[in-house]
């Protein structure tokens, strides 16, 4: 429990440790108000900071006929992607949860040494940058937390994704036979996850965070996501920069 409390404190510190301290000071100045106040600021939005290993599905493209250019150049190690998501909790379903649209964007880049035609490493760098974005419908079942004080909030997301990517080398954007290494890939975005509400681990700080910053709930979440950027049936041969991965992050409802 102490570890979870420490984690919660860390999360609160990330968003508003100062605010929490100020709130604490206010508490001390108003001792008659009591510790278990029922005040809670309005809640309409959620913001997520997302961290995930990224290993795009480029080599699954049937057009490659089994060739693995991504793996050959960049290897099998996943790269860290950082991202952010903003949700509008447009609809609250009583005793169930919230539903609304959300948008997100991320960034990752992979570098490797390009090779000479004989396979020897050259002094040139080859890179692939990916900026995935998506628009999804988000459903968060916070009934367990709101009605039963169980600090777990399962959620699901579904929508469309679009990633902008750029292949480059030391000289800039790559070119080959008239094709330029920059473009976009369209597809679907699905995710299932569960958030751990950190408020119960440090109610004092949580309340201060709400009063000062309007943050109702702070979560640590884990998610399984599938980004299938294979064209959505309308793109002929997109670079398959989607992937299936797990995601860890912090979420704030406000």
């Amino acid at each position: 429990m102490s570890r979870a409390r420490a984690l919660a404190s860390l999360a609160f510190a990330l968003g508003g440790a100062l605010a929490a301290r100020e709130a604490g000071a206010q508490e001390r100045q108003d001792p008659l108000e009591g510790r278990h106040r029922s005040y809670e600021s309005p809640q309409h939005f959620a913001f997520e900071l997302r961290f995930l290993p990224y290993s795009p599905d480029i080599d699954t493209d049937p057009a490659l006929h089994g060739a693995t250019p991504y793996h050959t150049v960049f290897g099998s190690s996943a790269r860290l992607m950082i991202g952010a998501e903003f949700d509008w909790q447009a609809l609250r379903i009583p005793h169930l949860g919230t539903l609304g649209p959300g948008v997100a964007i991320g960034y990752t880049k992979m570098n490797a040494q390009a090779t000479f035609l004989n396979g020897q490493q050259s002094g040139e760098t080859t890179s692939l940058e990916i900026i995935p974005a998506y628009a999804v419908a988000v459903f968060r079942a916070d009934v367990f937390w709101r009605d039963a004080r169980v600090p777990l909030v399962p959620y699901a997301k579904a929508g469309v994704g679009y990633a902008i990517w750029r292949a480059s080398n030391t000289l800039g954007t790559s070119h080959f036979n008239g094709s330029t290494g920059v473009g976009g890939s369209l597809g679907t975005q699905l995710a299932l996850g569960v958030s751990l509400n950190l408020n119960p681990f440090d109610e004092y700080a949580a309340r201060g965070f709400d009063e000062a910053m309007g943050v109702n709930n702070t979560y640590l979440f884990g998610e399984l996501m599938r980004s299938d950027l294979s064209g959505l049936g309308v793109q002929s041969s997109p670079l398959r920069v989607g992937e299936s991965s797990w995601v860890l992050g912090l979420a704030f409802e406000f």
Binding site: Y70, A167, S236
Partner: peptide, 27 residues
């Protein structure tokens, strides 16, 4: 040093049959 052609990712991808490129590669 002896500059010479290299295989970067994009070249490998295209040579292997990949057809992506551009923002308007719609069906």
């Amino acid at each position: 040093g002896l500059p010479q052609p290299v295989n970067d990712f994009w070249k490998d991808y295209r040579q292997d049959g990949g057809g992506a490129g551009g923002f308007c590669a719609l069906e």
